[in-house]
């Protein structure tokens, strides 16, 4: 009788998908650096336009020299050419291409109740990408994610030290309520209220205020409060439960094409993916849903390469225990035992 090989060793050639998480960190850091660089460039252009080098304070002159050095590598006419990249993740112009956050468009629509087509179209590319890749903005671009993930690591350290850190579970659907209430308030007050509670917009703005204007707005205070919320109430709580932008992206990416999927034959039920998931999803139970932001942390940590990207519009739910896990092997053994006893 054919004996199924139950102790099949995982393939030794590991897939390259697990390096995606490093790429993601690189992207996040680049985006954040750019958000700090663009206001600096803008300030440098002001000094340049005014021919004001002799009037600057020594520290400003130092700043001017550094920016001159940095920009001299790729432009000869900084005053003109550096205008090519302006803005932040909320709304930006990249080489003449207008890009806006879908939430900005929706919020502005709610506030003004008027269609302005060029602005509507500027969200087209982000929306299309979200339909294909789901909540990728949250995991791969959002400048707040970088800080929130570091904050989340900090909370792990605090827990190691025996200090309090929040592990409250709230309802994930809360953020859809926040989105709806935010839009309703935008309509009621006639100004884009969602911009005040949306961390990526806040960070883009506040970095500009801090660098170019030398002040900080109310957004900084709000952002610090969200950090405290994450630390003391719920891990990554703002993204999970409250972020209106995350809610919008989740809705848009519900039937995304690229989603992480578990190969049940390669899973050994170790549960590391469930523990690492920042959004408290359960990759090991095939529970991704619309919340998954394709951050690939679970792919990176999976010891048997059971998780991978697949092209399909729904999760393959309820695949059961991993074939390499103890539970599945136990059940197989029992089944074989039964077969033997029944004499077949």
């Amino acid at each position: 009788m054919h004996e199924p090989k139950l102790t099949a060793a995982p393939t030794l050639r590991r897939s390259l998908w697990r390096h995606l998480n490093k790429l993601r960190w690189l992207t996040l850091i680049i985006v954040f650096t750019m958000l700090a660089l663009i206001p600096s460039i803008s300030l440098y252009q002001t000094y340049l336009a005014a021919h004001a080098y002799d009037l600057l304070t020594p520290s400003q002159q130092q700043f001017y020299d550094i920016m001159a050095l940095l920009t001299s590598w790729f432009t000869q006419h900084p005053l003109k050419e550096l205008d090519a990249i302006k803005g932040n993740t909320w709304s930006a112009t990249l080489f003449g291409l207008q890009l806006s956050d879908p939430l900005a468009v929706l919020g502005q629509l709610a506030a003004s109740l008027q269609l302005y087509w060029p602005f509507l179209l500027s969200a087209l590319i982000p929306v299309l990408l979200t339909i294909i890749f789901g909540r990728f903005f949250c995991g791969w671009i959002c400048p707040a994610t970088l800080i929130y993930e570091m904050n989340s690591s900090l909370s792990v350290w605090l827990r190691h030290l025996g200090l309090i850190s929040g592990e409250q579970r709230l309802d994930r659907r809360l953020k859809y309520l926040v989105l709806i209430v935010g839009l309703a308030l935008s309509t009621a007050f006639g100004s884009v209220m969602v911009a005040l509670i949306y961390p990526p917009a806040i960070i883009g703005r506040e970095l500009y205020y801090a660098i170019a204007l030398g002040g900080f707005g109310s957004g900084t205070i709000f952002f610090i409060l969200t950090l405290l919320f994450d630390l003391l109430v719920a891990r990554r709580g703002f993204c999970r439960y409250l972020c209106p932008g995350g809610a919008l992206y989740a809705l848009l990416g519900r039937y995304r094409l690229f989603r992480i999927q578990r190969r049940v034959e390669q899973c050994n039920d170790c549960g590391k993916c469930n523990a690492i998931c920042e959004f408290s999803l359960q990759p090991m139970r095939d529970d991704f849903g619309q919340e998954c932001n394709n951050c690939t942390a679970c792919i990176a940590i999976c010891p048997t390469d059971a998780l991978h990207f697949s092209i399909r519009i729904r999760d393959q739910a309820g695949q059961g225990d991993g074939y390499l896990g103890p539970k599945y092997r136990q059940s197989r053994r029992e089944a074989d035992q039964l077969k033997k006893e029944s004499g077949l």
């Binding site: 930006a92 112009t93 806006s100 900005a104 003004s112 008027q114 884009v192 917009a201 703005r205 170019a212």
Partner: peptide, 16 residues
């Protein structure tokens, strides 16, 4: 109602 407070206007403003 129209302004989304993206700050682009200030970023391109030469005299700040």
């Amino acid at each position: 109602a129209a302004c989304i407070s993206c700050g682009l206007c200030a970023e391109v403003c030469p005299p700040k």
